[in-house]
């Protein structure tokens, strides 16, 4: 049984990648299991300067997921390259994806460039879809012209393949996908979180200090799946699928929709073993569904 897939010139042992922001810089999870079973890891969103992010509360529970308004808390690109990658390197032997955030084109360009000499990074994931930072973040992800301009500049400066992470908070996600493909993006990943809010029944005030936040978890799976399906149809570059994946069945469904690999986010937060468990059950699920190679099922739902 063959679980391997190719992504941006790199062969992953399996298509399961923890999603950015839900896996820290990886090593926290090494306390729970040997994380070398993971296909790769998408690191916590990194910005040029250190960021604290939004005030607490930053988490609000939902029936099938949660809202977060972290606001890209991270120690800044230089520290990530010098310290976090080194710490991760001690417990993880494979290559990883650096997730880059920003609030101006220049920020993104400089942050992405910081990873040029980081050997353990095989791709940049450009987060143009964070709903939790003012000035930018999602703005880059909602206007196709701005998104294309950003991708062109980052492509010029980065020595790594660039994957662009798309926002679901748009009327037509395929327009954004086509715009970044046209600007030279090597892949797209989707979806980031859906903007939502909750109100505390006892105080009648929004639970999140930022008022609204991004919704993720199993509740978003059907929306994510539909968007991956649409984007796969619209572009020729690889599509990395995520949003609400909790089980190996969800992985297969997402790959049928067109995902060349998948990212698993919120599942890690409610079960630290989620990715390990999903990977461990993939062979059994493949057997059940008569699948011998995962590469062959990418986009199968588009056939006929």
């Amino acid at each position: 049984m063959d679980l391997r897939v190719n992504l941006l010139g790199y062969t992953l042992d399996n298509p399961v990648i923890p999603a950015s922001g839900t896996f820290g810089f990886g090593y926290e999870f090494a306390e729970f299991y040997d994380i070398n079973c993971l296909g790769s890891i998408s690191l916590k969103g990194t910005t040029l300067e250190p960021r604290y992010g939004n005030p607490l509360p930053r988490i609000a529970e939902c029936p099938s997921g949660l809202l977060n308004s972290i606001g890209l808390q991270n120690p800044g690109a230089q520290k990530v390259v010098a310290e976090e990658l080194a710490k991760l390197g001690r417990v993880y032997g494979k290559k990883v994806i650096a997730n880059v955030g920003g609030s101006a084109i220049d920020d993104y360009v400089q942050t992405a460039s910081e990873f040029n000499n980081a050997d353990s990074v095989f791709a940049i994931e450009l987060n143009i879809s964070c709903p939790n930072v003012k000035h930018g973040g999602m703005a880059f992800g909602t206007d196709p012209k701005v998104a294309a301009e950003l991708v062109r500049e980052v492509k010029k400066a980065s020595t790594k393949p660039v994957m662009v992470k798309l926002s679901p908070n748009v009327t037509d996600i395929t327009e954004l996908a086509k715009a970044v493909e046209g600007a030279g993006a090597d892949a797209v990943s989707l979806i980031n979180t859906l903007v939502g809010m909750r109100i505390d029944l006892r105080t009648a005030k929004p639970i999140l200090s930022a008022v609204s936040g991004g919704y993720s978890g199993p509740g978003v799976f059907p929306v994510a799946l539909r968007m991956v399906y649409q984007v796969k149809k619209a572009v020729g570059i690889p599509v990395v699928g995520m949003g609400g994946i909790m089980t190996a069945y969800d992985v297969i469904e997402m790959m049928y929709a067109g995902a060349a690999a998948v990212m698993v986010g919120t599942a890690n937060l409610v079960n630290p073993y989620a990715c390990r468990d999903i990977i461990a059950s993939l062979p059994r699920v493949m057997e059940e569904l008569n699948i011998s190679s995962l590469k062959e099922i990418i986009g199968r739902a588009h056939n006929g």
Partner: peptide, 22 residues
Amino acid sequence: EARMGCGFGACMGCSIKTKGGP
């Protein structure tokens, strides 16, 4: 206390400000 996303350090949902950083 803080509202928590994970409870084990992965999500940054519970970070407070201290004199020694978050």
